[in-house]
Design a binder for these strands. Structure first.
Lengths: 337, 337
DNA sequence: GCGGCATTTTGTAGCGCTACAATTTTGTAT
DNA sequence: ATACAAAATTGTAGCGCTACAAAATGCCGC
C-alpha cells in the first residue's frame, strides 16, 4: 500500500477498475466471488486494490444489495459481562455463514433500548437480537427477524426467545447444597425476573427435601451492597444457617463481607454458592462455587434461530431454555456441625 | 405506528412524501433541519413517518452525504472494562455535536485490530479511536482523523495520542505508601508498556525516598495468577515487606491470595495498593486502595482532539497525558512494626 | 395591486456499489 | 476448421438518500 494524501477522496471501485484495466463489475465480482474470475484478472484487481488502499464502502454495498450480512445485538450495559459469552457464541455460529455482529448498548438507566435497536435497524442489519429487558414496543415492526436472548418478561408470544433456564440453575444449586448435607439454608434473592426464577427453582428443591429455607432481599436489588445487607439480615436472624445461595456472584461477594464481619469462615462455618460463573467466581482468591448459565450456548442457539428466520421468515416462533451447569470450587463444603 | 406486514419492503422517503403530499426533498429537510420547514408540512411529514413506521436508511444517508456523524472505537477486549469509562467520556463530549460512537473489538488473541479498524472505516466513520496496542500499519492511510487512546507503543509521531499518565500514577502510589511510613516495599509488575511506566514512576519515588524496594514479575503477565505468583516470591524472599503495590487490581487480588495463604492480614501486616480503580477495588468486601487512571477524562480529550481534527485535518499532532488520582480505601495503613 | 425580498418547496443529479441480462472470449467435440 | 456450450466480462439501471440550484410561494409597504 502506497502512502496517500489523507485529504484525497477515498478510492472507489472505478479507480480500481481503471488501474486494473477492467470493468467495475469485474472488481465487484472479485470482491464477492473471486472464483468466478480468471486468475489473471483477479490478481490484477487485487494488486490495484492494494496499490490504492481501496476499501469497499459498506454504505454503497448495503444500498445496492439490500443485505448487510450483519446482525445487530442490543445489550443492556457493557459492564454486565455475560454478553461477551453470548457474543462469542453468536459469532462462532455466524462467522461461517459470513455474518458479523454489531453491538449497541441501551445506555443503562436511560432506557434507550428502543433507540439502540432503531440505530441498528437504520444500519439495515439482517437480524436483531435483544439481550436486555425488551419494553414491548421494541419488538414490533422491526421488519427483520428478531430474537430475545436471556430475558423473558414482556416478550410477545410471536417472538423467538432463547433464555437461560434459571429455574433449572436454582435447582442445581439446591441439589448441590442438599447433597452436601445442608439443612438450614439461606437465599439472597433480588427483584428481577431472572432472580425470581432462580429463587423458584431453588425454593422448590429445598422444600421438597424438607430442609429449612430463609429468603432475604426478595424486593431488593442485585448489587454487592444488596447482597451484603441481605446476608447481614440472614445471619443475624437465623444464625443457624450453614449455607447461602446468592442470586449472582456479586451478591455472593457481599455475603463474604457479612460473613467476615461476623468472624465466620467460608466454607468452614458457611458454604456460599453464587450464580453466573463470572470472572469473580473464577478468581483464585475467592474460588467461588457458582452456577454457569452457559450464555455461550444461548448465543449459538440465538444465531441458529436467526439464520433459520432469515431463510424462512414465516417460521413459527421458537422458545428454548438453555440448561445451566454447576462449577464446584472452594466455597462449598459439608456443614461442620 | 400501524402494524405492517413484516414481509413488506421497508418504506422509503418517497413513500413518506407521497403520503404526506410533499416532495422527497421536503421530507429529507424535515429529517435534518425541521426549522426550515413550515409547521403545516412538518407535521404532515411527521404523521406520515409515524404512520408508515419509516426509518431513514443510514446506508443511503451516508452515501449521499458522505458524512456519518459517527466515530469508530476499536478496543482490545470487552472484558477490559476501562473502555466503558473511555466510551462514556467520549460520548459525553460528542453527543452535543451530534456524533455517536460505534464499537469494534479486536478479537483478543487473534490480533484482529486491523480488521476491526477496516470494518469501521468501511462504514465511513468520520473518525477513528484506537484503544488497543496499535500494530503500526493500523495507523497509516486510514483516511480519517485517528487518535490513539491509552497506549503509547508503536504510535508514529504524526498521530494524536491521549494517554493515562502511568508514571504519575506510580508516583502517586509511592507517595501514599511512603507517607504512611512504609520503608520496605514490594512491587508486582508486568511486562506491558503501561506496567513499565507504572513501575518507573513508582521506583523513582521510592528510591528517592531511600526506602527498600523489591520488584517481582517484571517479565511476567498481568493476570491474577501472575500477581499471586509474584506475591508469593516476594513474601518468601523478603518477609520484611510491609507494603505491596500491584500494577493492577487483578494482580492485587492475586496478592491477597498469597497473603492469606501465609496467614497474614491486610492491612494489619501488609498494605496493598492496586491500579485501575476497577469494580473489584470498589467492592465493599475488598475495599482496595487503588490508583484511578481517569479514563473518562481520556475519553473527553480524545473526543475533543477528534473534533478538532475533523474541522481542521491539517492540525499538528497532539500529545496528552491525563493525570490519575488516588482512591484510598481500606487496604493501606501505617506499618504495624 | 404590485415590485421586491425572504421564505418555503421542488427537480435534478449524483454518492459507490451490485444485480442481471447481454456480450465477448474460451474450450471442446466433431 | 466449425459449431456450440461454458466461462468470463461488461453495460445498464437502479438501491434511498442529500446537495444545490431553481422555482414557487408568502409577505411587506406603498
Amino acid at each position: 500500500m502506497t502512502a496517500r494524501n489523507p485529504q484525497a477522496r477515498r478510492p472507489t471501485i472505478y479507480d480500481v477498475a481503471k488501474l486494473a484495466g477492467v470493468s467495475p463489475s469485474l472488481v465487484s465480482l472479485v470482491l464477492q466471488n473471486p472464483d468466478r474470475v480468471s486468475e489473471k484478472r483477479r490478481e490484477a484487481v487485487r494488486a490495484a486494490i492494494a496499490e490504492l488502499g481501496y476499501r469497499p464502502s459498506r454504505a454503497a454495498t448495503t444500498l445496492a444489495s439490500s443485505r448487510t450480512k450483519s446482525i445487530g445485538l442490543v445489550i443492556d450495559d457493557y459492564r454486565n459481562l455475560w454478553f461477551v459469552d453470548l457474543l462469542r457464541g453468536m459469532e462462532s455460529a455466524l462467522t461461517e455463514h459470513g455474518y458479523h455482529v454489531t453491538l449497541a448498548d441501551s445506555r443503562p438507566g436511560e432506557n434507550r433500548i428502543k433507540e439502540a435497536a432503531d440505530g441498528l435497524l437504520a444500519m439495515h442489519v439482517d437480524g436483531l437480537v435483544i439481550a436486555a429487558e425488551p419494553g414491548g414496543t421494541v419488538l414490533t415492526g422491526t421488519g427483520v427477524p428478531t430474537v430475545v436472548a436471556g430475558w423473558r418478561n414482556g416478550v410477545p408470544p410471536n417472538v423467538d426467545l432463547i433464555t437461560n433456564d434459571d429455574d433449572g440453575g436454582g435447582a442445581l444449586a439446591a441439589d448441590h447444597l442438599l447433597g452436601l448435607g445442608h439443612t438450614r439454608i439461606g437465599h439472597l434473592s433480588g427483584s428481577g425476573g431472572a432472580a425470581a426464577h432462580r429463587r423458584a427453582g431453588f425454593d422448590g428443591r429445598v422444600r421438597q427435601a424438607g430442609a429449612g429455607l430463609w429468603i432475604a432481599g426478595e424486593e431488593g436489588g442485585t448489587s454487592e451492597e444488596d447482597g451484603y445487607a441481605s446476608a447481614c439480615w440472614l445471619l443475624d436472624h437465623y444464625p443457624e444457617t450453614t449455607a447461602i445461595f446468592a442470586a449472582n456472584d456479586t451478591m455472593a461477594l457481599g455475603a463474604f463481607g457479612a460473613i467476615k464481619a461476623r468472624g465466620l469462615a467460608v466454607p468452614a462455618d458457611i458454604s456460599v454458592i453464587g450464580y453466573d460463573n463470572s470472572t469473580l467466581a473464577k478468581s483464585r482468591y475467592l474460588e467461588l462455587t457458582s452456577v454457569d448459565n452457559r450464555s455461550d450456548l444461548v448465543g449459538v442457539d440465538v444465531a441458529k434461530a436467526l439464520l433459520e428466520r432469515i431463510q424462512d421468515p414465516t417460521k413459527g416462533p421458537k422458545r428454548e431454555l438453555i440448561k445451566p451447569s454447576l462449577v464446584v470450587r472452594g466455597t462449598t463444603a459439608r456443614p461442620s456441625a
